[in-house]
Write a protein that binds this DNA or RNA. Structure first.
Lengths: 245, 245
DNA sequence: GCCTAGGTCCCGTCC
DNA sequence: GGACGGGGCCTAGGC
């Protein structure tokens, strides 16, 4: 596609809050929360309705460059190529994309009001524990969930038969040193607030790293093996056989 | 575009390791590390050369759905629409994208061997401190950087005039409670390893949250105001005036 | 392979 | 608006 034609088309598409996708040959400079330069290559350019700009290389999950929503996108024709300037006054950053060739491009007004329905988060796990307290222990009695303190929020807070407080930190995946740090921070704060030295710390997760387990036990805390509530039956039912061939 | 045509084209593009971009009207189901459903709407579909699949809604920085590199991508024609199946045997996840309409599509072999050159990371900051130790204190003497321990790695490790050990944790942005947790973990480990109770903890960052500062001081640690090494002069020189209008 | 932590993290939520 | 922590986090680096 002619580079001047692209410039005009992109400019009006941005103004109309259309989404733009393109294959381009370009070179990129970023300055803001860091500084970056990427030499010439073929990439995917995506400009969204809210002026989010995303650039992908041909491989990998993450964009190689991006600008956050609400940026100012302008195009400048220079010789035989187009310079796309993206500026964000909020975080004082800018992205310059020097576009040498446009292989393919499309722009369109996209309509999508849907929100994703997602299950299996850590919040679901703390719900699950509140509703099934024996997962933590036979005498665990939940009092609150997502309890706010000035040092962060406690996933599940409760007490045992003797009335001693219990702090539960949940991780939906393998618990690490950082999870133990969090648990320790909450337990210490509860001790201060409640004026007691007897507070139980429980780390609930499907697994835990060896170092985290050592550290956990050195603080006198306990690990509870808990699976996050997910419905993987469908995978096992529908897909397992496929991979067995 | 005709939906059957799309199916055939996409299938051969995937086989040829081409990159595909498209505007589609679709509905999405995901099952794997979580479970998710997204009703019908217009989205951007991106399939990369390594079979990474990324789907964007018209707004926001992050993809609403994705599958990691190395997935198996297949297309199935069902009535008047196409079902795209993406399966990843590594993490036992799958993504089903039911495509009802294809507004625009392009596929192409993209060539890009470039790697990004990036400055301003936390690693650059610890380099900067090692080379300018007075940023931490007048009598700070660095010994090592990115020192590995069994409880994580210490950004900058050194000693003072009296030979007491100093542990420095760097953050390129506002330091939070988690940064204090890390610092405390490293200081405690150094005390154990070196068999001393006199270890100084320093949190180096451009700013720190009030709660983090309280917690830091309660452990007897110190905050050092350090800017991450970035070259923002260009921003201030080139862009500042524009926003002043 | 696991473990650890950074990220131009982004994002929601609650104060 | 700041603070805090989750994320289907992803990715890099060390062991």
């Amino acid at each position: 596609m002619d580079i001047g034609e692209f410039s005009a088309m992109a400019e009006s598409a941005v103004a109309a809050r259309e989404v733009i996708i393109a294959f381009v040959h370009c070179q990129i400079t970023y300055s803001g929360r860091a500084e970056a330069f990427l030499g010439r290559g073929d990439r995917v350019l995506l400009i969204k309705a809210d002026s989010t700009v995303i650039i992908h290389q041909p491989e990998g999950s993450n964009p190689i460059n991006y600008m956050r929503p609400g940026s100012a996108v302008t195009f400048e024709k220079v010789d035989q190529h187009v310079m796309m300037h993206v500026m964000n006054s909020g975080d004082k950053s800018f992205l310059d994309v020097e576009i040498f060739r446009v292989y393919d491009v499309a722009s369109r007004k996209l309509e999508d009001g849907q929100k994703q329905d997602l299950a299996g988060s850590e919040r679901d796990m703390s719900d699950h524990i509140r509703d099934n307290p024996t997962l933590i222990g036979n005498d665990f009695h939940p009092i609150s969930r997502e309890e706010q303190t000035d040092v962060g929020f406690i996933d599940v807070f409760g007490h045992d038969k003797q009335g001693h407080f219990v702090v539960v930190e949940c991780k939906r995946i393998t618990a690490s040193l950082m999870a133990v740090d969090q648990l320790r921070r909450y337990v210490e704060r509860v001790k201060q607030i409640k004026g007691t030295q007897v507070v139980t710390g429980v780390l609930a997760a499907p697994s835990i790293t060896p170092n985290a387990r050592d550290m956990l036990e050195s603080y006198g805390f306990r690990y509870a093996h808990v699976q996050p509530p997910m419905r993987l039956e469908r995978w096992h039912r529908d897909q397992k056989k496929i991979f067995e061939y």
